[in-house]
């Protein structure tokens, strides 16, 4: 099972309409991506909560359809907390 970069980006954008989203394909097999998501929705949340928010946006596909997703979550001011 795999997922295209486009679908991954679409899912994240749907959940974070204001976000800047960058998807990097780490292995070219549709299973290993790095996603950088910059959204005001992350402000005031721990890194764990931010990642949980992104996983929720993938609606359970994470771990089944998508094996590995390296996440970098930032708030618009660019500070990575």
């Amino acid at each position: 099972m795999a997922m295209t970069a486009g679908e991954l980006e679409r899912l994240i954008r749907e959940a974070f309409p204001d976000a800047e989203v960058k998807i990097e394909d780490l292995a070219g097999d549709g299973n290993h991506y790095r996603a950088t998501v910059i959204s005001a929705a992350f402000r005031g949340r721990t890194r764990l909560q931010q990642h949980q928010m992104v996983y929720r946006a993938l609606g359970g596909r994470m771990g089944d359809e998508l094996h590995a997703l390296a996440l970098r979550t930032l708030t618009p001011a660019g500070e990575e907390n």
């Binding site: 990642h51 359970g60 771990g63």
Partner: peptide, 20 residues
């Protein structure tokens, strides 16, 4: 509320996966 493994718990609290 974490879909992948590994998962690390410290003193009963989820710290996160390998990235974190």
């Amino acid at each position: 509320d974490w879909p992948t493994f590994p998962q690390l718990y410290v003193k009963g609290e989820l710290l996160g996966g390998f990235d974190i």
